[in-house]
Simulated assay, not measured.
Amino acid sequence: MRRGEAELVRRGIYTDLAGCALLRPASSGAEVAAVSAPPPPPTTGTWRGRILDAVTLQPLPQAKLRLGPAGAETTVLTTAQGVFSFLVDPGRAVAAHLQLAGYLPLDSTYHPRRGPYVQDILLQPLAVGTTLGLDKVQFEQGSSRLLSTSYPALRRLLKLLLETPSLTIELRGHTDNVGPAEKNVQLSERRVATVKSYLVHHGVAEARITGLGLGGAEPRASNDREATRQLNRRVEYRVTGR
């Protein structure tokens, strides 16, 4: 008893020397109580969030939202406050597509966690003067040759320009800091020309696109290592008209 241990010897009532009962059988007749197993993790969860303007953080209930597994997305309704709710499988990726006139379309992937999942979605307004990055549009070092990973982002920009005929942009080219500054400016101009050529070749009027080469004057990351210098070899675009 001091160790808090017991062994089943036989059925019945156990007493001390004075005849006082110490242990009695369980009313259910079970010899040993079963240890409760932890509940299994939930197989579904709910993603709750809001659709907001990335600058003002105001709700955007008019936005068209589609969520679901890639290739099988469904339309999701939002409230007047821009709130949405969507049933998800925790741990599985959810593709998100969001569109609203005057905003940059969003195509992204989210990974909801187990339990209640709260995640807002921000839409970037296409206001005149706004500068937006072309994620993963990058170039080989010292060259205007695009890396193969650049084309999905270029296709998204192309789609935006084709679907918004009044939109005009300025392409802004950047390099790392390797080499003479003057040559880097020239290289950034060639990179702008490469992106512009792609867009014009696929149907965008040349007059809608201007360009500017900035060389290494505006780095986005450190130039100390090649992995981060690569991030500086990029092209962005600034909205000049809508």
Results as ranks from 00 to 15, higher is better:
N223H: 11
A127W: 09
R225K: 14
R114D: 15
P152W: 06
I13S: 03
Q62T: 06
L214D: 13
L167E: 02
G179L: 01
Q81E: 15
L98E: 11
S188Q: 00
R229W: 06
G241I: 08
P38G: 06
G142P: 04
P105E: 07
Q186C: 00
T131N: 11
G68E: 03
K64C: 06
T43R: 14
V192T: 13
L123C: 02
D120S: 01
S188K: 03
P90C: 02
R3E: 10
R145D: 11
R208M: 11
L214H: 15
V94L: 04
L231D: 06
T75R: 13
P112E: 08
V178K: 11
L160M: 10
H97W: 08
S166G: 03
A207L: 10
V32R: 11
L231R: 14
L23V: 07
P39H: 09
V185T: 05
V192S: 04
Q141P: 06
R3P: 07
T175E: 03
N223E: 13
F84D: 03
V35Y: 14
T56H: 11
A34Y: 02
L126D: 00
H201N: 12
Q99V: 10
L87V: 15
G29F: 01
L187A: 01
T168P: 02
A18R: 02
L162T: 13
A217L: 15
F84R: 05
V185I: 08
R238H: 01
A221H: 13
R10Q: 10
S143I: 02
P61L: 04
E140Y: 15
V239E: 05
G82I: 06
P42Y: 10
S85T: 14
P69Y: 01
R50N: 14
A221T: 09
Q58K: 15
